[in-house]
Amino acid sequence: MSPTPVKKQVLLNELFYFKEMNALPEVKMLIIIPAYNEEENLPGVIEDLKDHLDEIDMNHIVIIDDGSIDQTTEVAKSLGATVITFPYNLGIGGAVQTGFLYAAQNDYEIVLRCDGDGQHRADQISRLIEPVLTGRVDVVIGSRFLVEKSYDTPFLRNIGIKLFSVINSVIIGQKITDSTSGFRAYNRKAIKFLAKHYPQDYPEPEALVILKKNGFRLAEVPVEMRQRMRGKSSITFFSALYYMIKVCFAVFMGMFKY
């Protein structure tokens, strides 16, 4: 499957405030970046966003420092982003949920969620938000497995991702190829919902289950990703087993939660 061509007109200039472009409504978008010890990667991530989104207002990028022990908060502030700092490490789910709380409190219409390690590329954002912008779906997931490029992901992780995707697909009754992808776009309805309910550890696959269960429309779009710039992934080999068991169980239980 070849990736759909990027729509330039959606991309540049006024991504943050669309004004009658392609009859698209005026949209207020927030970018959520959870960061745990990402002082080395953040400047590159922000640089990338600036390169691809013209006239980007840094206030609309919120970086959530999940109790980092390095200079993540200071670096994020010096880059001009809105920074929310936790006094201790709350976990990725709590961090992302805080982003949704911020978005809901400040009345954002679209949330774009991307990682702080640089693997999510800013030039893919337009493709990601397009289905949400046009109102066709509530949640868009960027899938690296829908493009014809092989990724050099570690063997065990690759298996894990595939396994979760299959389990996830079966449970929600919709084909998902990259259920652990955190590169996603959400509309206002989803923002409000997730501000209240967001899973804690390794939340991406479980979030899909609770979203689907509550009637949200999901769609995947092909996106290209990068390898991590620097530093290590938060998922180590030793936590992989726990990760698999926990996520499988959480995804399974997600079916029965209110």
Partner: peptide
């Protein structure tokens, strides 16, 4: 505890702003 941490952090950000 999670909720409190989130609220406090959001408040802190708002005050700084």
């Amino acid at each position: 505890n999670k909720r409190l941490t989130q609220e406090v952090s959001l408040l802190k950000q708002r005050i700084e702003q």
